[in-house]
Nucleic acid binder design. Structure first.
Lengths: 244, 244
DNA sequence: TACGAGTCTTGGTCCAACAAATACAGAGAA
DNA sequence: TTCTCTGTATTTGTTGGACCAAGACTCGTA
């Protein structure tokens, strides 16, 4: 196979290596991006403009653009056009979402331990970045637990709360990992809980965490958040053992 | 609920509910693959057959196929048709071969912060689980840095060292995440280093970490490991600024 | 049975057109 | 002047059709 030259590909100016027309356009687009020094947020020319510039049909340009989109390098919005982005990590995780879920499902405890690591042990960083806006939005999200109609909806709110919490870190890699694990996390959250449990216990636990953050009480934050995570895990363990 | 049922749920949850016609076809294709139980090597229907089956135009089907190709899930050969494959690992590496763009800087800093969270802040857990066998294997891996022939090989050893380190945690979820991030981590490790750097500085830093573990000196472990990670990040920053 | 020419099929590419959405400019109102 | 509404033009999304090149296939022939 000719595509075995990944090492060569690492160098910017890969040989023309004339492949299909779409591959040629992809190469030209990459060259365009690097030579123009385009950064995240910058716009690419319109599709029709790229057609004349690369002397290719619009379909060919579109297929090339699909590849760049799949690679998480550009984002295309109707009427707006294509803009440079960098969601490669998220794409990489999506690629392996099947594997990750497959393995992780065998050990939910791993995911829960992972969450403890991410959420509780980054407390200092969270408090560094914490702003009033974060607190307000966390309370707003948690308030939604009052209106939930079923467990599915409740776990979505619960998940949103924790995502908003770690979003304070401003680390996209962590957010990407969370989105991959979302299905597993939702199931953990639902285990052993009722709609009523979410509306009372889960709500109160979240409020306790927010209060600790508002008071800049890091120890209380760690203690309450860890307890909150443990509760979910305990519910899950009980049900698992009961089933087995 | 059977486990098979859960599989389907997880997969569907991972996919966007609605979207463009191309996204719909992508979803249908993935559904087709999983429901037919197609394995690597099996053939997909022809493009024109997919058009009538999914009630979409050929261009739409082709764009959807481009996405699956970019994801490394199918391989298309002229006159042969599309066959199921699994080049996801290779694709993941290709994702980050696009580099040299300033684009990726945030990704790299995020990953490095993530590694700090995983490796350094789980110190207590690592020391809980630590066994002599772990220390011996870590030393064995690190010793390989003496025989490296090029930077590529060196970064593989470096990566193996850190994977072995976190494997002490016994958390498969974390190991999965690391395997996905491997391409990025390798590139971070290679930045600003020479073969010589790996054989001296990196080797010594790793030995220092192992020594701290052997002495059950948690503070030294955290300090040295964090410094080690920071060195990699500093190399990366320097190169980026030098280029810009 | 072996072989070879002709036909069929299939992916690759291009073209033209329409739909849907919206950025933008210009008219009109406060 | 400034704001708002509206119409137009532009851009992406999607469709259907067309042609090409080349491997796959058929079938008659030796």
């Amino acid at each position: 196979m000719t595509d075995k030259r990944n090492d060569v590909d690492l160098e910017l100016n890969a040989l023309p290596a004339t492949g299909s027309a779409v591959d040629v356009v992809v190469r030209q687009l990459r060259k365009l991006i690097s030579e123009e020094g385009l950064k995240v947020g910058d716009s690419l020319p319109t599709e029709r403009e790229l057609c004349v510039r690369f002397d290719a049909s619009r379909n060919t340009v579109r297929e090339a653009m699909r590849i760049l989109k799949a690679y998480g390098l550009v984002e295309v919005r109707p009427k707006i056009g294509a803009t440079i982005t960098d969601n490669r990590m998220a794409r990489a995780f999506e690629l392996f979402s099947f594997n990750t879920m497959e393995v992780s499902r065998k050990s939910f405890t791993d995911v829960q331990a992972f969450r403890d690591l991410i959420e509780v042990r980054s407390a200092d960083r969270i408090f560094e970045e914490l702003q009033d806006k974060d607190l307000a939005e966390l309370r707003e999200i948690n308030a939604n637990l009052a209106d939930i109609r079923d467990i599915q909806e409740a776990s979505e709110v619960d998940y949103a709360f924790h995502v908003r919490l770690i979003s304070i870190l401003g680390n996209n890699a962590i957010l990407d990992v969370y989105s991959v694990m979302k299905p597993i996390i939702l199931r953990i959250m639902q285990k052993g809980k009722t709609r009523r449990t979410f509306m009372t216990e889960t709500y109160d636990e979240h409020e306790g965490v927010i209060d600790a953050m508002a008071a800049r009480d890091r120890l209380a934050f760690e203690y309450r958040l860890r307890n909150h995570l443990m509760v979910g895990f305990k519910n899950f363990s009980d049900e698992m053992e009961g089933k087995a």
